[in-house]
């Protein structure tokens, strides 16, 4: 194991890691917004929009991110729309993440018993008040496990960004292997980088999940 090599190239990995995290963060936030919107549309079964979001969800869940990125990065320019690698990465991530988040939130909304809504209405609360004080708090806590899984999933998906020329962790690793043949060192640093990013997140979410568990909803 060439320790000097590792020391020399650690900064490169850190920079790539930061890039990965930055794009992941933007992508996750975007996915949450898209997801919330879609889940509410599907929960309240708003006509027309419901079909459109349904189609969107099926398309994005049944196709790989790589193809979505290739289409955005290599395909769109042929139709006159040129996007930077970073923009493609973010758009692709939100396109994919939005549908996953939507399903997570929708299962949360549907897990809240309709009798809870009726109990709220019977107290004389307006529909808006019932959604705000009774429905959403419960829906959110039910969604947490799926939400956590999605966050981790999206961060893992960022590993394909190197395919659209983004200098992320995979790009750096592949470069170093190709240029210096220091495969073991490059791979080791790669694995450690992802462990550093994902292990803490995974642990924090397990902790939150355990805290938020109440036995039984509605009764």
């Amino acid at each position: 194991m060439d320790i000097e090599f590792i020391q020399k190239y650690t900064p490169l990995y850190i920079e790539a890691g930061e890039l990965t995290l930055r794009i992941a963060l933007i992508g996750i936030v975007g996915s949450i917004i898209v997801g919330l919107l879609c889940s509410l549309i599907r929960y309240y079964q708003i006509p027309i929009l419901r079909r459109i979001t349904g189609l969107y969800i099926e398309l994005s869940r049944n196709t790989p991110l790589l193809i979505q990125l290739f289409f955005l990065y290599f395909g769109l320019p042929k139709a006159g729309i040129v996007l930077s690698s970073e923009t493609c990465a973010i758009v692709g991530l939100i396109f994919l993440g939005g549908s996953y988040m939507s399903e997570a939130f929708r299962s949360g909304l549907e897990a809240v018993n309709s009798s809870q809504i009726e109990a709220g209405l019977s107290l004389g609360l307006t529909r808006y008040q019932v959604v705000r004080y009774v429905l959403l708090p419960q829906a959110i806590s039910v969604s947490v496990p799926a939400f956590a899984a999605n966050v981790i999933f999206l961060i893992k998906e960022t590993s394909v960004f190197s395919a659209v020329a983004l200098a992320d962790l995979m790009y750096v690793a592949k470069d170093l292997i190709g240029l210096y043949y220091q495969t073991n060192e490059a791979l080791l640093m790669l694995v450690i980088a992802y462990l550093i990013i994902l292990l803490p997140i995974s642990i924090v979410f397990s902790f939150i999940e355990r805290k938020l568990r109440y036995a039984g909803f509605g009764n």
Partner: peptide, 10 residues
């Protein structure tokens, strides 16, 4: 935890 691409590289 490891992205599949990383596993493929490994």
């Amino acid at each position: 935890i490891m992205p599949q691409l990383v596993l493929l590289f490994l």
